[in-house]
Every structure is written in structure tokens, then in C-alpha cells.
Design a protein around this nucleic acid. Sequence first.
DNA 1: TTTCAAAATAATAATGATTACTAAATAATA
DNA 2: TATTATTTAGTAATCATTATTATTTTGAAA
Lengths: 140, 140
Amino acid sequence: MKSPEAIINLFSQKGLKITPQRRLIFELLAEDESHPTAEELYQLVISRMPDVSQTTVYNTLHELVALGELAPVENLSEGGARFDTNTSNHHHLFCMHCHTLVDIERDFPDVQLALAEAKGYQIVKYQVTFYGVCQECQKI
Amino acid sequence: MKSPEAIINLFSQKGLKITPQRRLIFELLAEDESHPTAEELYQLVISRMPDVSQTTVYNTLHELVALGELAPVENLSEGGARFDTNTSNHHHLFCMHCHTLVDIERDFPDVQLALAEAKGYQIVKYQVTFYGVCQECQKI
DNA sequence: TTTCAAAATAATAATGATTACTAAATAATA
DNA sequence: TATTATTTAGTAATCATTATTATTTTGAAA
């Protein structure tokens, strides 16, 4: 995700206010690659600023998604929706055992649908998800 | 999905009982390609057999998934998890506007990760999802 | 066929994630 | 500094799903 400063500028431009709670959330997300759920982020937040409410976390996540700086991720794990701080088009590696999600920064240029195959859909993007078992879970 | 008769045999073999409710669910799913949610299937069910409970629908869906005859689908729409009656490895076309999901029966043989790219994961399968706008939604 | 144990059903309550609501606190601007 | 719109925390409400339980039904055995 963009730096906290960049996000702060964006929020200011849109007339959204900068609060200490939001500052902290921006900082936590800037260094995050774990595709956290709202709850996971909330736990992180209150470990540093104990009185922040869930509402604030949900609210800020929604603002970030609305601004296109954060993306909801399709996922199959429990515990709620996950968010991706990497909003560029990329792909995923999913551990079917522990539900960890890892980014893959590589293109698959041959993934193309012929016009007939697209069934009238106007294609915007595609996403490849690899399902497997991560190194840790293979040991178990 | 397999024919109702085939599913009935499977259930019998496993010691699961065949009820009129389950018969109906098997029939509805056999001819379904809409990737329904539990709720959507429940509505279909009660339109034909009004006293069936949600519990029964959820329960039967779970049994089918446990037997590998039905697959939960990753999805980004609201209204709960979707189920796929096509359990073979295939790909999807998703309308970002109306959230319709359509199967694509074609392979992308070049989607392969080199050992280093797999980051220690043991890959089981991969799934390509195309995001776009369906023909109906383009008109709006 | 009747009997019977195991399984399934319907109804209901409980849970977990998320959204809605609201009064009080705060940020940003004049 | 005063003002006003926004944000916050707390709470209740909602939606999808799971758990619980008493009753009913299935399917196999007598």
C-alpha cells in the first residue's frame, strides 16, 4: 500500500479527516502483506491503542477500499473477509490447510479468452489462485 | 453434478438415509449451473416442498461437499457462500455488476509455477477467475 | 409386516461477522 | 478561538451459519 503520508494526503483531499486512529491503521497496513481480516487488523490496532473500536477499523477499511487503495480478496477461509494492500493486478498462492495467502508477482500472458469463450462478457482482469499446502503445513 | 440416482446410491453406501427432502435437493442440483447460495437453493426447495427447513438444506449441502460431489466456490458477492455442482477442475467468469458466475470449460496449460516461484508450497490445483461485465449488465 | 436403533427433520437458539444508529468527542477551517 | 461537519465508541440490529434438541422417519433386522 502507499505510505501513510500519501494516504493522509489522499484523505485530506477528499475532505476526510485524519485522526490518530486512522494514522495508526495506515501505518499498520503500509507494512502489511498478510491479507488480514478486519478482526486481525483490529487486534493489531488495539495492541497499540487499546480503546479503538471495531467500528473505526471497519469504517477506515471501507474508506480505503472506496478510494481504491485497498482491495477485498476472494477467499475460502473462515473468520471474515480479507483485504489486500497490493491493489495492482497480481495472483495468489493459498494454503488449503492454514489458509495463508501469499502474493505471486508474475504474469501469465497466455491466460486470454477468445471472443467466443468470453460469452459476451467484457473482461476487465483475471486472477489466478494456486491452491496447495505451504511448507509449514507439509511438516505436520 | 451426478444424477439423483447416482447420488442416492452414494448416500446409501455411506449409511446416509434417503428422504423426500434430499431427493428433491438432488434433483434441483442435478440440473443447476447457477452456483447457488444455500439461501437460493432453499428458496427453490420450498417453492416445491414448502415445509423443508433451512437446516435440512445446509445439512445436505454439507454432506454433498464432504462426499466431494459439490464444491464451495470462492466468491466476492454478498448473500453467502456459493456452491459449484461442477467438481471437475475448471475456471470461472464473474460479472462484477450482477455477480453472476459462469463456468469456463477450457484449460490454461501455461499456468505453471517454477519450483522457486511456488515458495515451498505443494501445488494441488489452480483456478483462473475472469472479472468483467456480462452482456445484460453492459446494456444498463 | 412389525420393530427398533440410528439418522434426519423442523424449530429454535446461539454464534460470528458486519452494518446501522446515536450521542459525545474531535478535526479542520474560518 | 469558535463553528460545523466528521469521526468516534458504544450499542443494538442484521445476516449467514452452526448448534441444540425433541420429534419423526428411514432402512435393516426380526
